Amino acid sequence: SAVVMEEGSPGEVPVLVEPPGLEDVEAALGMDRRTDAYSRSSSVSSQEEKSLHAEELVGRGIPIERVVSSEGGRPSVDLSFQPSQPLSKSSSSPELQTLQDILGDPGDKADVGRLSPEVKARSQSGTLDGESAAWSASGEDSRGQPEGPLPSSSPRSPSGLRPRGYTISDSAPSRRGKRVERDALKSRATASNAEKVPGINPSFVFLQLYHSPFFGDESNKPILLPNESQSFERSVQLLDQIPSYDTHKIAVLYVGEGQSNSELAILSNEHGSYRYTEFLTGLGRLIELKDCQPDKVYLGGLDVCGEDGQFTYCWHDDIMQAVFHIATLMPTKDVDKHRCDKKRHLGNDFVSIVYNDSGEDFKLGTIKGQFNFVHVIVTPLDYECNLVSLQCRKDMEGLVDTSVAKIVSDRNLPFVARQMALHANMASQVHHSRSNPTDIYPSKWIARLRHIKRLRQRICEEAAYSNPSLPLVHPPSHSKAPAQTPAEPTPGYEVGQRKRLISSVEDFTEFV
């Protein structure tokens, strides 16, 4: 048969007729292969192709491409040299491709048809291009793949890379869960390890502090508590009631339409708007009261037996805890006409967050109470924005700035309102402590230090009264110190430094 060459192609190359033996071998191979691939376009007849790359030819070592076609129900084999250009295909004639002069020997084609199974398996396991790669995943090629499931790999992101949580363990979102698992493993320790309690022994800490320079003076030496005195035992138990972190309780009120001037209507609300609910979820963490331990979680007086509701929101960081007394989460009882059960919590909070959804101005004093010092007013606006402002009593104007209003988005509203309420509550605590000038409020841990110092002074006084020969370590507060001759004046800087060093040991009130 003659071949018409394309323009620009090399000279004529004689194409030899395939021997009958080659056709029989390739026909047997075509019957084993699956003929249901995917359909081509209507211009080209339905056909199945599979590209198999052999590394070497037997005796020649030339890479070839073998295409199996099922045109007219008769499979045909096409061998081509890759750099050459194939002729145009037609549905009426068999596929013809040019070969190099080196394939002119018909014996070479017979060798190609009689490829060993080793070469076929190696060509099938190679990388296939384009559409033949999808075909190689079918059941027909499963014989050339190794048996057994593939090893499982770690989760992959859409980009093909490992997620960040699997790369950096410290930033993994499941870090707290692993800590819980470690605690569970520790709890399952053997009885021999049960006595080993991690941490620092208080006796060891005391020993280090006792021999430090801070205890060089007799006034700073630790003293032993009497065991037989019940009054001192009660004082030590009272110390446990003062937490070592700051605590805040903040009221949250929802004002519906037409309720801006009605205290009873505001306290009777059992739910609010959708934006109000989203605002609550951002204030803190939802907790169930019956599962809380009052000595570990500050509840601000809420009952854990269901008297004040089942849930509330709280927030904490390293040095403070805040609980929100939310009116809509507290039960509304029919027998309580004046809502006294709610007001006994909300009316005693220094700061209230008022979500004013009424469309009218909310005035300070609508919720009557002796300790309502500051109101954080949240007014929802259009386009997911809110107006946040402050209202306070006249005696609080020096501590709280009420002249600045803020426009905040719904997303950042819980954070801004919480921070403003916490700052206002700190100012309210300082303002409330002014009624007792001898006990200015600095912080909870300073209050613990003052309680310890008062307890020490009482013990020293009782020891001096029981044994008059012992001198008083600290003179009583009601006694007057003996007159001392004025010492020589020293520079102001040295006096300030000495006073600062003494105050650092005794108390921190002056620095606050």
Results as ranks from 00 to 15, higher is better:
residue 450 R to M: 08
residue 231 S to Q: 13
residue 454 R to Y: 14
residue 396 M to P: 01
residue 316 H to S: 15
residue 472 L to D: 15
residue 394 K to F: 10
residue 316 H to W: 13
residue 239 L to F: 06
residue 367 I to F: 09
residue 274 Y to Q: 07
residue 342 K to M: 06
residue 285 R to H: 13
residue 363 K to H: 12
residue 428 S to V: 15
residue 218 E to Q: 08
residue 271 H to S: 08
residue 284 G to P: 01
residue 364 L to P: 15
residue 431 H to P: 01
residue 338 H to P: 09
residue 413 L to I: 04
residue 478 H to F: 09
residue 318 D to P: 14
residue 278 E to S: 08
residue 442 P to H: 05
residue 378 V to K: 00
residue 396 M to W: 03
residue 487 A to L: 13
residue 468 P to M: 12
residue 455 L to W: 07
residue 363 K to L: 09
residue 472 L to E: 15
residue 331 P to A: 05
residue 307 E to K: 15
residue 454 R to I: 07
residue 268 S to I: 02
residue 468 P to K: 11
residue 244 S to I: 13
residue 496 G to A: 10
residue 296 K to T: 07
residue 372 N to W: 03
residue 490 T to L: 10
residue 325 H to T: 04
residue 324 F to L: 02
residue 373 F to M: 15
residue 255 V to Q: 01
residue 400 V to A: 04
residue 220 N to V: 15
residue 272 G to T: 03
residue 360 E to G: 05
residue 380 P to R: 00
residue 307 E to V: 07
residue 492 G to S: 07
residue 273 S to H: 02
residue 445 W to F: 05
residue 271 H to N: 08
residue 331 P to F: 03
residue 459 I to W: 14
residue 374 V to F: 11
residue 316 H to C: 14
residue 364 L to Y: 15
residue 385 C to Q: 10
residue 453 K to S: 08
residue 240 D to H: 06
residue 220 N to A: 15
residue 246 D to M: 06
residue 286 L to I: 07
residue 453 K to F: 09
residue 249 K to D: 15
residue 458 R to D: 15
residue 438 T to P: 07
residue 346 L to Y: 04
residue 459 I to F: 13
residue 231 S to T: 09
residue 399 L to F: 13
residue 360 E to H: 05
residue 409 S to V: 02
residue 256 G to N: 03
residue 261 N to Y: 04
residue 403 S to V: 04
residue 458 R to W: 15
residue 316 H to R: 14
residue 454 R to H: 15
residue 240 D to V: 02
residue 279 F to T: 00
residue 303 D to F: 02
residue 267 L to Y: 08
residue 425 N to S: 14
residue 405 A to F: 12
residue 270 E to G: 05
residue 224 L to R: 07
residue 460 C to G: 14
residue 505 V to S: 14
residue 220 N to G: 14
residue 506 E to D: 11
residue 233 E to T: 09
residue 318 D to H: 09
residue 488 E to T: 10
residue 495 V to Y: 09
residue 409 S to A: 03
residue 415 F to I: 05
residue 319 I to N: 14
residue 247 T to E: 15
residue 345 H to C: 08
residue 251 A to T: 08
residue 490 T to D: 12
residue 249 K to Y: 15
residue 229 S to H: 12
residue 256 G to R: 03
residue 472 L to R: 13
residue 475 P to A: 12
residue 488 E to C: 09
residue 391 Q to N: 06
residue 451 H to P: 06
residue 265 A to M: 05
residue 471 P to I: 06
residue 234 R to S: 14
residue 338 H to R: 09
residue 486 P to K: 08
residue 385 C to N: 06
residue 363 K to Q: 12
residue 317 D to V: 00
residue 465 Y to L: 15
residue 427 A to D: 00
residue 323 V to A: 07
residue 379 T to K: 07
residue 472 L to M: 13
residue 369 G to K: 05
